[in-house]
C-alpha cells in the first residue's frame, strides 16, 4: 500500500527513534511511504490557538501535497497530536465550500489546492494498522509473539477526543485499538486509570506542576497495575512520559522508572527486529528490562 507519509516534527526532532522504527517496520507491513518532505508543521493546536485560518491554511497545504502523491491510498501520520490538530482543521475546511475556496486561494501561487473528497483519509499509524492492514494480517506477520510482556496502552487525547470529529461514528472502537494491537502481538494489555487521559505535555511550559503531576500519576497507575512498559502512538506524550519522567517522579513523590515505547517499536519487536535497531537505546528511561524479556523470548 502506497501512502503519503507525514512523520511530523517531533519524530524527526527529539524522538528520532520513532521515525527510524517506522521506516524499519513499514516494508514488512507492505507499506510504501512517500514522505511529505515539503510539508509544514501541523501547528499542534498552538497555531490554531493563535489564528484558526492560519492553522487551517497550513494544514490544507499538507493535505494538498498528500493528495498529489500519485497512487497513494491516503495519508498516514505517526503522531496523535498531528492527527487531532489536522482533523480539527479538516473539519472546518470540509464544512464550508466557500471557506475552503478562500483558504485554497492562499495556496494557489504554489499550485496547491485541498479538495474535499469523502474517500480521502488521513490516519494515524494505529488506525491504519487496524482498519487498512487488519489485525488478522498483522498477526500473520508476527514472528516473535511478545508473550509475557505486560504493556499499558497510552493513547493520547488527540486521537480519542472529541469522538464526533475523529470519525468514531464509523469506527466506534478506535479507543480500543491500542489494546487490540498489544494483544494480537502476543502481549498482555494492562488496564489502568490513565490509558485515555492527558500526558500533560501541552502545559509543560505554562504550568509544570499541572503537567508533570498528570504524567507522573498515569505512569504510577500503570506501574501499580503491573505494567512492564507503556506504549504510545504520540511522540509528545512520549516526551512527557519518558524524557520528563525523572521530574514527573518528583511531582508524585515516588520512584517510577517505567519505560515507554513508541507504537512502531512495539510492532517492530514482534516483527523480529532487535531493540537496538528500533532505537530503544535512545530513551531516557532505560528499556533494558523489556530488552531482556524480549531476548528471553527469542531464546525460548
Amino acid at each position: 500500500m502506497k501512502l503519503a507519509y507525514w512523520p511530523g516534527c517531533v519524530s524527526r526532532g527529539f524522538t528520532p527513534e520513532l521515525h527510524g522504527s517506522m521506516h524499519l517496520v513499514a516494508p514488512k507491513l507492505g507499506l510504501e511511504l512517500v514522505e511529505l518532505d515539503r510539508a509544514n508543521c501541523c501547528g499542534a493546536g498552538v497555531i490554531a490557538e493563535h489564528n484558526q485560518e492560519m492553522a487551517d491554511t497550513l494544514n490544507a497545504r499538507t493535505f494538498a501535497l498528500a493528495q498529489k502523491v500519485d497512487g497513494a491510498a491516503g495519508m498516514m501520520n505517526i503522531c496523535s497530536t498531528c492527527q487531532g490538530a489536522q482533523s480539527e482543521c479538516q473539519e472546518r475546511l470540509d464544512a464550508d465550500s466557500g471557506y475552503r475556496e478562500h483558504v485554497n486561494s492562499h495556496l494557489s501561487e504554489e499550485g496547491l489546492s485541498y479538495e474535499r473528497d469523502g474517500e480521502w483519509w488521513n490516519k494515524n499509524f494505529l488506525w491504519l494498522l487496524v482498519e487498512e492492514i487488519g489485525l488478522d494480517k498483522l498477526s500473520e506477520k508476527v514472528v516473535r509473539p511478545l508473550e509475557g510482556l505486560r504493556i499499558a496502552p497510552f493513547y493520547g487525547c488527540y486521537i480519542v477526543r472529541p469522538t464526533k470529529r475523529l470519525g468514531y461514528e464509523g469506527h466506534p472502537n478506535r479507543d480500543k485499538y491500542l489494546d487490540f494491537v498489544i494483544e494480537i502481538l502476543g502481549a498482555e494489555s494492562v488496564e489502568y486509570a490513565g490509558s485515555h487521559k492527558c500526558c500533560g505535555f501541552p502545559v509543560i511550559t505554562m504550568n509544570r506542576a499541572t503537567s508533570l503531576r498528570q504524567a507522573g500519576r498515569h505512569l504510577a497507575d500503570a506501574l501499580d497495575a503491573g505494567a512492564d512498559c507503556l506504549v504510545t502512538p504520540c511522540p509528545l506524550c512520549h516526551l512527557n512520559l519518558d524524557m520528563q519522567q525523572p521530574d514527573a517522579a518528583k511531582f508524585v513523590e515516588r520512584d517510577l522508572d517505567v519505560p515507554v515505547l513508541h507504537l512502531p517499536q512495539m510492532v517492530g519487536l514482534a516483527l523480529g527486529f532487535e531493540p537496538k535497531e528500533l532505537g530503544m537505546d535512545k530513551h531516557v528511561v532505560k528499556t533494558s528490562d523489556v530488552q531482556r524479556k524480549v531476548a528471553e523470548l527469542a531464546a525460548a
Binding site: 488527540y158 472529541p162 487521559k197 504550568n207
Partner: peptide
C-alpha cells in the same frame, strides 16, 4: 486560561 491541558474532555 493557561492551566488548561487541551485534553478535549
Amino acid at each position: 486560561i493557561y492551566d488548561c491541558t487541551h485534553c478535549f474532555a
